Amino acid sequence: MTITYLLKGLVIGFAIVAPVGPIGVLCIRRSLVQGRLYGLFSGLGAAAADAVYGFIAAFGLTVITSFLLDYKLWLQLIGGLFLCYLGMQTLLSKPAEYQGDVQEGSLLASFFSTLFLTITNPVTILAFISIFAGLGLSNEHGNSAYAVQLVAGVFAGSASWWLLLSVGVGFFRKKISLTSMIWVNRISGIVILTFGIVALIQQWTS
């Protein structure tokens, strides 16, 4: 029966990350400008954060959930500021004349930047709690084996989406001219910056 929990987790993980948000824009931009591997590591950072939140929801760790929700505004404020920083950095960055010259940070930097962005969005934990509760997947009976399978499925589902996205977008990389790369940076930067500004505005209106 554990395979059922694994598959359910996979579907949940895939479905939660499929809508394109700031992480998706970052992944697409890095896949185009830096290469598939950078896009994939960016996605894996988000997948790791999803797995952490899935773990919290699956094991019913109410203390951690309460802490995250208590500091929701502060976390979203930090996340919004970081999005603004990434947006401005992307907007002002200049693409290398040759794609082999592009080395904007390490793979670990790509991983941890999206991990940080996803972790600072406590709304994700609410999504997991709601979905798990709605599907009757909460770990009420203390069966850790099922919960682990569920969390593994969430990570696999999320990672699968980022793999498909980075590989798919990567096919267009060699077909994009230097001028197009400039516009990729500008458009991506504006979109990411907009997400950050919206997040900050929500702090003032909430």
Rank of each mutant, 00 (worst) to 15 (best):
G35T: 06
Y38E: 09
Y38I: 03
A57Y: 07
S42N: 06
V33A: 10
G39A: 02
L61T: 08
A49F: 07
A49V: 08
A49D: 05
Y53W: 11
L37G: 00
A51T: 02
Q34W: 01
S42C: 11
A58R: 13
F59V: 06
V33W: 09
T62V: 14
L44D: 07
A57C: 04
A57E: 05
V63R: 09
I56W: 01
I56Y: 08
F55G: 12
A48L: 15
A49H: 05
D50F: 02
F41W: 15
I64A: 12
D50M: 10
T62S: 14
F41V: 13
F59M: 12
Y38R: 11
G43A: 12
D50P: 00
F59Q: 06
F41K: 06
I56C: 08
Y53A: 02
F41Q: 08
V33S: 14
Y53C: 10
L37A: 12
L40M: 12
V33R: 14
F41D: 03
G45R: 09
L40I: 12
L37T: 13
A47V: 06
I64H: 04
G39S: 02
A48G: 05
V52E: 03
G35P: 08
L37E: 09
A46S: 15
L44K: 03
Y38K: 14
A47K: 07
L37H: 05
A46Q: 02
A57R: 06
V52C: 11
A51F: 00
L61N: 12
A58N: 12
L37F: 12
A57T: 02
G39Q: 01
A51D: 04
G35V: 05
G54W: 04
F41S: 11
A47T: 07
G39T: 01
Y38P: 02
L44F: 15
A58P: 11
G43N: 10
L40Y: 11
A46D: 06
T62M: 09
Y53E: 00
G60H: 02
R36G: 02
S42K: 07
F59E: 11
A58F: 13
S42R: 07
A47F: 07
V63N: 03
A57V: 04
V52A: 11
A58D: 11
Y38A: 14
